[in-house]
């Protein structure tokens, strides 16, 4: 056990006289503020200020490619335009479709995989690592990789479908068809992020104490009863957490879908974030896109808050 007082003495004697004089007069609270101040300043500079600036821009006609044009206050015009724009609603609908189905598939498959991996079997560590590979890849790599897999003439995906169904491989286009493209991006995201959901679910399953399941066995509870009454309720907070993380992530999905479809065909897979990027950095409607960003932020923030409250309720049960 080191001598705390001796260390403090050594530190005090090493502190330059001028500094010591200033610090000696400060309260504990002031010193605490001094320590957190750099972080606070950094946060304000890179998080809070841009947010406030975005709110300001959302009420103006500012366009980043027209710096010389007078900036005029347009009030709530952009908010009204966005909320009544069929294109924006189509983008929100595409986003909702993407978020709903990816979360559903990832949760079902991820939990099932976690349930299987949780059983000890020969080579389970190896298989866990194999399953985790997709989530280790960069979304840009995954986007390009699947673009080749979906290629109707040489892509493996079409050949696999053809092998099982007999449909000629060149007769359908996963990325070029209005009907199939929304599912093509769901498949890729599910492939990539199911392992992540699996990991969280696995943590939940492993947190269930063995003695509870042993007691259930002693009470002659069936496997189904054990799963339904013990495993699932106890793993539920973890599953909900995974859903929350994936929901937030997929609501702002951009890179992988941009590389796969570019939002097409037409605007079929133009998710909200892609629509936002087009308005902000291709059409340079800075005011409009700031309002759109604020609306998206409020939606995600609101939904996440409601969800976190539900999560807390489940945890308290």
């Amino acid at each position: 056990m080191p001598d705390i007082e001796a260390i403090a003495d050594r530190a005090a004697s090493a502190t330059p006289h001028g500094v010591a004089k200033v610090v000696r007069g400060l309260s504990d609270r002031s010193i605490a503020w001094l320590f957190v101040a750099p972080t606070m300043v950094l946060l304000l500079a890179i998080n809070i200020f841009p947010l406030i600036w975005t709110v300001y821009l959302s009420f103006t006609n500012f366009a980043s490619n027209r710096p010389n044009r007078p900036v005029v206050n347009v009030g709530l015009k952009w908010y009204q335009d966005i909320l009544s724009s069929p294109e924006i609603w189509a983008a929100m609908q595409a986003t909702a479709h993407f978020v709903f189905w990816t979360i559903l598939f990832q949760t079902l498959i991820g939990f099932s995989l976690a349930y299987l991996i949780d059983r000890k079997f020969r080579g389970h560590a190896f298989w866990t690592t194999i399953i985790l590979i997709p989530m280790m890849l960069s979304p840009a790599v995954v986007g390009n990789f699947w673009k080749f897999l979906y290629q109707p003439q040489i892509g493996l995906f079409n050949y696999v479908v053809s092998f099982f169904t007999g449909i000629p491989p060149s007769s359908f286009e996963m990325l070029g068809s209005v009907t199939l493209a929304p599912w093509a991006i769901v498949i890729v995201d599910t492939w990539m992020w199911t392992p992540y959901v699996m990991l969280i679910c696995l943590a939940g399953l492993r947190s269930i104490p063995d003695y509870i399941l042993e007691a259930a066995e002693v009470d002659r509870a069936s496997r189904w009863q054990q799963f339904w009454s013990i495993t699932l309720p106890m793993a539920l907070p973890f599953i909900m957490l995974a859903v929350l993380f994936r929901g937030i992530e997929n609501f702002k999905m951009f890179d992988m879908v941009m590389l796969l479809t570019g939002g097409g065909p037409g605007s079929t897979t133009e998710l909200a974030s892609i629509a936002l990027k087009r308005q902000a950095f291709e059409a340079y409607r800075t005011g409009y896109s700031s309002a759109f960003a604020i609306i998206l932020f409020v939606v995600v923030f609101g939904l996440a808050n409601v969800y976190v409250k539900a999560l807390n309720k489940v945890k308290q049960r």
Partner: peptide, 18 residues
């Protein structure tokens, strides 16, 4: 840039997305 993006969308919606 805005004019071009509008045309890109209208044309792709019609030609490719049918």
């Amino acid at each position: 840039a805005q004019l071009l993006q509008a045309m890109q969308k209208r044309l792709h919606d019609y030609v490719v997305a049918d």
